[in-house]
């Protein structure tokens, strides 16, 4: 598509961008709860490791979302989400749940 893109009246890229923002927010809430769980009841080795891991996972998710939001904001026709990208986002979520299981037990 070489001619200047006409604005999509359905605002699809914008809605998708906001969906990524909402998801980042949900991820932040989960990460905060995870850190609270990790540091609850004194400092332990497992707690510190899980806390650090959750922070890294949250940052990774933030980075993924930022990447995608930038791609959606580009003036060209938006590219389809890459499966690798989606899988990475899912793996962050699953790893956070695994941290949670380790902390709860």
């Amino acid at each position: 598509m070489s001619p200047p893109k006409t604005r999509d009246p359905g605002l699809q890229p914008e809605r998708t961008r906001l969906a990524w923002r909402r998801t980042t927010l949900a991820s932040t809430v989960a990460a905060v709860l995870a850190v609270k769980t990790a540091l609850h009841g004194g400092v332990s080795a497992v707690g510190i490791v899980a806390c650090a891991l959750c922070c890294v996972l949250w940052l990774t998710f933030l980075l993924l979302a930022h990447h995608r939001i930038r791609a959606l904001a580009a003036p060209a026709t938006p590219v389809v989400l890459a499966p690798r990208h989606a899988t990475a986002a899912i793996l962050c979520t699953v790893a956070m749940a695994a941290c949670g299981a380790a902390l709860v037990l």
Partner: peptide
């Protein structure tokens, strides 16, 4: 591309559901 983006939003909605469930797990604990 609009269909793909709609599909992506559905995916993200399910991902939020998953994150809410995980957050709920932490909250119960």
């Amino acid at each position: 591309y609009r269909f793909s983006l709609a599909n992506e939003r559905t995916f993200l909605a399910w991902l939020r559901t998953a994150l809410a469930l995980i957050g709920g797990g932490f909250a119960v604990d």
